[in-house]
Design a protein around this nucleic acid. Structure first.
Lengths: 294, 294
DNA sequence: TTGAATAATGGATGTTTTTCATCATCAAAA
DNA sequence: TTTTGATGATGAAAAACATCCATTATTCAA
């Protein structure tokens, strides 16, 4: 079988010209290389080089191997470099799972400085989970989970990174726009926009409407925050979003936000990681970056 | 050092799920794989997988290696396939050197069916040689040499592939156009176009003008056959080309050709190969294809 | 002709890989 | 809860392999 050492030999010959010098550069004897290639030759039933005068001349087969070497050897050493960085805790992959649609903008602000600091960390963000985001975390599909609704488990550690108030968003022209807070029954004739998730997982139902046995006139799904806000700004309905997110857009759009009930719905974003991995430096640094970012 | 076997192991685990099945698929014992990876782990000072319940779970390091494996292993097996084809004489590289400018069109007709029959043969055509085309053949820069002027050497074998007559090309309106042959002194007032090579290597000089101690009014270099013929067709001068090539273009251009002297200049195209390589099948097939092509 | 430089070869040695047998752990079945 | 079968890890012995050393063979240049 064609082995890495064969590639190293052919590559060293290309660089140094003679077998003896190639052997030196690999810290092996000339004999070792000769034997090694001889064996390969008998396996593949082809000559790899032939002696011509004092020097070697590669055959077509030898040149093929040399081509493979030049393509493949750098990849080996790159992976070895990465492994040594992983050994020192400097590299790895951070696969982020998100269960919080509106947090995407915030996540981008976390990621940006993080990627600068960890140039060797690969990053990936997933938002769809066949067996739930928690399942994905437990089955190593993702490494961190960003969620406002932590499901506590012994193997998972959740760290709160920031609190915010969940608020109702209405058009500035809306009849509720001047109230400080809204009551469940006041939404009975409203159209509600939400991200396409089960109503049970929407706080506006679980923490506000359902307890008061109220509902809305109509519930429509919209995928993206921007479109949702455009619809609200056009007074086509209302939606529920984090206060800080509304504040950002309120500067440029005719929208207002009000508290849910007298007390409001106060939420907390958590970052969940597997317990065993609390000592991984680049992972903990992601969390501390998340805590810093508002 | 990261070896091919490690990649094979990680790749087999990805495919088969368990270490035991991976071992079977590699025709090795489960123990062998376990030991092998254990050793690698101690070398790179990182875990590659960990046992989780009954199964294995790759660490970040393990996944890196798996990624490398999926990139690199197919390249190994592809090269091995090529080596086995080379062993059977089914593959290789054919680097063709050409010392015959107008033969390029002919060469294309040879190459076309050849490439169909030898899908694994790489092909390259070179026309510039620092130390002469023969030197290139002797120093393995090229594998075959196509030339009308063979320089015989013991290490080189020349095979004639086709004969043709070298003819003078003139515009149909030219005053010589109706003659059957031309005499050296009749060219004294003509402009001659030729490819940019030393005059010594042009047959019109070495075999026609020089022996008669004649010359032309002006000698101009042109790189390509097409432009050269356009110039001749415009009656701006004359040139010397193989008869068959002129015949091809005479259908669509106002040009005629005539013999050099009463006897004409008769040429032969040879294909030269290194003596030692006469048993290489794909090489000999190139030559037989060349003989067939007119 | 000689001497230096080169690659190939044979045999001895030491290392590495592989296997075999066994242990430890886990999950599912009884 | 206990048992069973499947899994991976481990240690020791055996087999295979790689490497080195010493030597030979060849080539090229002095």
């Amino acid at each position: 079988m064609l082995e890495r050492i064969h590639l190293e030999i052919l590559s060293a010959i290309k660089e140094h010209g003679t077998l003896t010098k190639a052997a030196d550069s690999l810290h092996l004897s000339q004999s070792a290389l000769s034997h090694s290639i001889k064996k390969l030759e008998s396996q593949v039933a082809t000559q790899i080089w032939k002696k011509e005068g004092r020097n070697l001349r590669l055959t077509a087969a030898g040149e093929r191997i040399q081509t493979l070497a030049s393509r493949v050897l750098p990849q080996f050493s790159h992976t070895e470099l990465l492994l040594s960085q992983i050994a020192k805790g400097e590299a790895g992959a951070l696969r982020i799972g998100m269960e919080c649609h509106p947090c995407y903008q915030w996540l981008l602000r976390v990621i940006h400085p993080y990627l600068q600091r960890w140039p060797n960390i690969d990053m990936d963000v997933k938002q769809e989970f066949q067996f739930g985001a928690l399942g994905a975390l437990l089955s190593y599909e993702i490494d961190v989970l960003i969620t406002p609704d932590p499901l506590f488990k012994p193997q998972i550690n959740y760290i709160p990174v920031f609190g915010y108030e969940h608020r109702l968003v209405v058009c500035a022209e809306h009849k509720l726009a001047d109230q400080e807070f809204v009551l469940p029954e006041q939404l009975a004739q409203e159209v509600l926009f939400s991200y396409p998730v089960e109503p049970l997982r929407l706080d506006i139902f679980s923490q506000f409407l359902n307890p008061a046995k109220c509902s809305v006139k109509k519930h429509k799904n919209i995928e993206t925050t921007e479109i949702m806000l455009q619809m609200v700004a056009a007074n086509r309905g209302v939606c529920a979003l984090p206060g800080w997110l509304v504040d950002e857009h309120a500067k440029s759009m005719p929208i207002k936000s009000l508290r849910f009930g007298e007390k409001g719905i106060n939420k907390q974003i958590y970052v969940g990681i597997r317990n065993k991995e609390q000592q991984i430096e680049y992972l903990m640094d992601f969390i501390s970056q998340a805590k810093k970012t508002k």
